[in-house]
Write a protein that binds this DNA or RNA. Structure first.
Lengths: 336, 336
DNA sequence: AGGGGTCCGGAAAAGCTTTTCCGTTGCCCG
DNA sequence: CGGGCAACGGAAAAGCTTTTCCGGACCCCT
């Protein structure tokens, strides 16, 4: 039976009317259990699967949410997606992802497809959390949420990791280890995350009655190469640092590698902590790199909860940031 | 206007009947261009977007394909997805991904959801290309293809990189550089890819009238750590190798790192080539790591083409492997 | 035995689009 | 001026499910 069986087929097979079959399968209406079982048996025998298209059309709700990802490697999107899906599934909602790869044309296409399929909600995910232009499409009041990504549209609902808090956590961890000269080696200054992480770093130092030494703050790109170069620059200072907060794990790993080559030992000579907790990087570093975890999965879960509330008609505060956590490894604490 | 406008709204707004509005928008039937334009204008004014649910229901085809990914980091799935999507989009087919994360329950759920949405095809993608049990669901003749993944069901259509060919390419590259003792440091032997890559390595050596030296073939896990350890073992041999084919880029990078620490220079002392061409690893290695690219995007494109043919009713040969390519970097050729 | 209530299952409409089939209008030509 | 044809637009059905409304049957009680 190539075309999938419809409810009518089931009804015919069970010798009842179409409406009755529906009621039997949905446990609604009032039927003799004998009739109900007959229908159920027929449905099983025929391998019946209700047609979501018809259901959605009928009730005007698709119980489907679309996720548009601009993270071409999926490193950030995947954990978010898992969290989202768990929460949405509880409510019987399916989640489908489309990959836009930072191409506005592709993105538009995907949004259009999703609108055509009458999704009940939309999630945007990014590779970086900077403000992005609103998609040039009228979403017509469709519940929409930006996760690890922000819209420049006022009133849009965004969910982000608390970058400043994460950097503060990292810096405070180093302060608690008794470090006095803490450097910050990070990415390009035009990333909002870079500015916020710097701000958290500053706050932590200020909180400990220390000032930021501009010589100890270095901006570059997100690569290991930059981490290595930055270490050499820092070591050339009259007063090298005794700890470093890296803007991400790749930079952190570069710092550690350069240290090894100079015969410096982490954390004894310099303690290093990264950001992102990208395990494949952090765990392969020598010593393994302490890092800040952005709890992306939890971010996805919270996004799912908020989206559900939005779908229920509730108004949601526009932007929230969720806390990061500290993951201690040997690059700051050898006993870890 | 919270509920999206329907074709009926457009028709009313334009002062024509529903059927006429449909014809105007689909350029079918025979209408005065005046009427057609009136409808088009109304549709634009109202922000009309046809309801794919109704369309799909009507024509019995959803023009949608589902992708089930078991690659929790998306490193392999994402490029495949891009290729797939490009090819499917040409045919007006949308691609939606679900993440199953190697959880059979999740996977079942997703398949069921996709079947309910009456997708016209299904793609399975993996993190590893080993044979996997068929999903315990009746797909009812739905066109299905496994990419970078295999089903143990006979007759299933699978599309894979030519692992053996890739390893042969790598080994021949090293032979062409004049290397005589070529080692192979790879992952767990229970991966089919590991066995195939070893076979390619063997073929290349045999083709050059060289035998495989069992001392030079080391199985371990996929980590950098194992790469480092393996290098030390190889260096402890009476006759250390002058080149190494690594089973993946992480192992390759571990090998290079350990070489640096021993004061060995790549490629002068030992040339190293990896596998996967995972740029974030290969390019950050010192020196940058030559590697074998599995052309995953092309794999995705070919999968899309085959799927389209299957949807058109064509029978497809069950399994194919697509060629890998060699990416030369400084770890084998300093001039690269 | 008849009337009222309960229990069941059927009929029909709605949800949105496409397509086929018809009816109407207007024009041209005889 | 009337008949026929082309051009155009409307009506209706189909595709699948859910849900409401109804009608029929049966039971119980009086």
């Amino acid at each position: 039976m190539s075309p999938r069986p419809t409810l009518r087929d089931v009804a015919t097979h069970a010798g009842v009317s179409l409406g009755t079959a529906s009621k039997a399968l949905n446990k609604s209406g009032t039927l003799r259990s004998e009739t109900r079982n007959k229908v159920l048996a027929s449905a099983r025998a025929l391998g019946f699967r209700p047609n979501d298209l018809a259901q959605a059309l009928h009730r005007g709700q698709s119980y489907t949410v679309g996720l548009i990802s601009n993270d071409s490697f999926g490193r950030f999107t995947m954990p978010i997606m898992e969290g989202l899906e768990d929460v949405l599934h509880e409510a019987g909602i399916a989640l489908f992802m489309c990959n836009a790869t930072d191409d506005p044309e592709r993105e538009k296409r995907h949004i259009d497809q999703l609108l055509g399929k009458r999704v009940d909600g939309l999630v945007f995910t990014g590779r970086r959390a900077d403000r992005r232009p609103a998609p040039g499409l009228n979403l017509g009041g469709l519940p929409t949420i930006y996760v690890f990504s922000q819209s420049d549209e006022p009133g849009s609902v965004c969910l982000l990791p608390d970058d400043a808090g994460g950097a503060r956590l990292a810096t405070e961890h180093l302060l608690a280890l008794g470090r006095g000269r803490i450097a910050h080696v990070t990415g390009p200054q035009d990333f909002e995350a870079v500015r916020l992480r710097h701000e958290g770093y500053r706050q932590a130092l200020t909180g400990a009655d220390r000032a930021v030494d501009p010589d100890l703050v270095l901006y570059g790109d997100w690569s290991e190469h930059w981490g290595r170069e930055a270490l050499h620059r820092l070591c050339a200072l009259a007063q090298p640092p005794d700890a470093i907060v890296a803007g991400n794990d790749q930079i952190g790993r570069g710092l550690l590698e350069a240290m090894r080559e100079r015969g410096l030992v982490a954390p004894d000579d310099i303690a290093v902590i990264g950001f992102d907790n990208w395990s494949v990087m952090a765990e392969a570093a020598r010593p393994p790199l302490s890092s800040i975890d952005m709890n992306l999965r939890a971010l996805g879960e919270e996004a799912g909860r908020r989206l559900r509330r939005m779908m229920a008609g509730e108004e949601i505060a526009s932007t929230a940031r969720l806390p990061c956590s500290l993951v201690v490894r040997a690059s700051t604490d050898p006993t870890a």
